[in-house]
């Protein structure tokens, strides 16, 4: 598959974002190149877990995007914590089926992924990390796309 395919699609996405802006609570921080984008998201309702917080997302696109999902992680900065969630590891890795090969659809895009993550946070009431977070974070040197997540419970 030619990288051109991904480039073209990302170009179109960028153009669309610039023309019509992103939904509330989502902001494009940088899209310097067509390999890595940074976005900020906020949870807009009054969920006390995430109130007044902004979270930084890093998207990395392969040459097979959007046939294959992008790699999406939360990034920790001094003013950008990793949100507390039973499917988000403390190193920012997200366990979400739509970002895996099985759950991904090429119709998804950067905007729809951000919205899914927003609603994943909105709907959460548990102030906790996934089980085994410590071990996972310590042991895991893999890139998210090389991890076989087991989507045990998608109700959270």
């Amino acid at each position: 598959m030619s990288a051109q395919f991904a480039t073209k699609r990302l170009g179109k996405e960028l153009q669309k974002i610039r023309n019509s802006r992103l939904p509330p609570g989502i902001e494009l921080v940088s899209a310097e190149n067509l390999e890595e984008w940074l976005l900020d998201i906020q949870v807009l309702d009054d969920n006390p877990l995430y109130q007044n917080q902004t979270y930084r997302l890093k998207f990395r696109f392969g040459s097979t995007y959007p046939i294959e999902p992008p790699e999406v992680v939360f990034v920790k900065l001094s003013d950008r914590p990793i949100p507390m969630h039973p499917h988000i590891y403390s190193n920012g890795i997200i366990c979400l089926d739509l970002l895996g090969q099985q759950g991904w659809s090429p119709v998804q895009n950067v905007e729809s992924v951000c919205m899914s993550l927003q609603s994943m946070l909105t709907g959460n009431s548990k102030n906790e990390r996934p089980p085994g977070d410590d071990d996972f974070v310590r042991a895991n040197q893999l890139r998210p796309k090389d991890i076989e997540f087991y989507y045990h419970d998608n109700t959270v």
């Binding site: 598959m1 097979t64 294959e68």
Partner: peptide, 20 residues
Amino acid sequence: HYLSQKIREEGEAARIQCPS
């Protein structure tokens, strides 16, 4: 592109779903 990914990389054939 979609089918090539499924067939070549993921080894799927009998249960490839609509890309939507």
